[in-house]
């Protein structure tokens, strides 16, 4: 199953991240994964949240530029080489990973990995067929 990810325009301003998290908190939306890299003047914050559609509405109403796109979320096995297997598999199938980031570490369990691939449906199929655990929406909200 493909998961909805939310992308938010991030101008380089003090307190901007807190404005985003504040807006989500106010509306009781939980953040499951989040990533933003250091860029000179502006960047993109990506997040997996509970209720992404409502999150988009909330953020847009608060004046943020935001959009929903889809990603694959997988759970690698907890052993050396398991991540390599996932990336190698997609490379072998000729799929390009635009970016990847991981969920917050859970108690004694492996974090989920978010993969943004151009060919999402094919990636989903390839991963499932090769025994890699793909996460569905309900698991994210657990």
């Amino acid at each position: 199953m493909l998961i909805k990810q939310i992308s938010i325009f991030l101008p380089n301003q003090k307190g901007h991240l807190a404005r985003v998290t504040g807006a989500l908190l106010k509306n009781k939306i939980d953040i499951r994964a989040m990533v933003a890299f250091d860029t000179a003047d502006f960047g993109i914050l990506r997040a997996i949240v509970t209720e992404p559609d409502r999150a988009l509405e909330v953020l847009k109403n608060d004046g943020f530029v935001a959009k929903i796109s889809k990603v694959v979320v997988v759970e690698p096995e907890d052993r050396t080489g398991s991540l390599h297997e996932i990336f190698a598999l997609l490379a072998e199938k000729g799929m390009n990973i635009d970016y990847t980031y991981s969920f917050v570490m859970r108690k004694g369990e492996m974090p989920y990995f978010v993969l943004k691939v151009d060919e999402l449906e094919q990636a989903l199929e390839a991963l499932t067929q090769n025994g890699i655990k793909v996460i569905n929406k309900n698991e994210i909200n657990e």
Binding site: F9, T39, G43, I44, V65, A66, K67, S69, D98
Partner: peptide
């Protein structure tokens, strides 16, 4: 002011 959310797909677009 950025108004078009479509460019948020990738940093390159932005």
């Amino acid at each position: 002011e950025l108004v078009d959310a479509e460019v948020l797909d990738s940093f390159q677009l932005l």
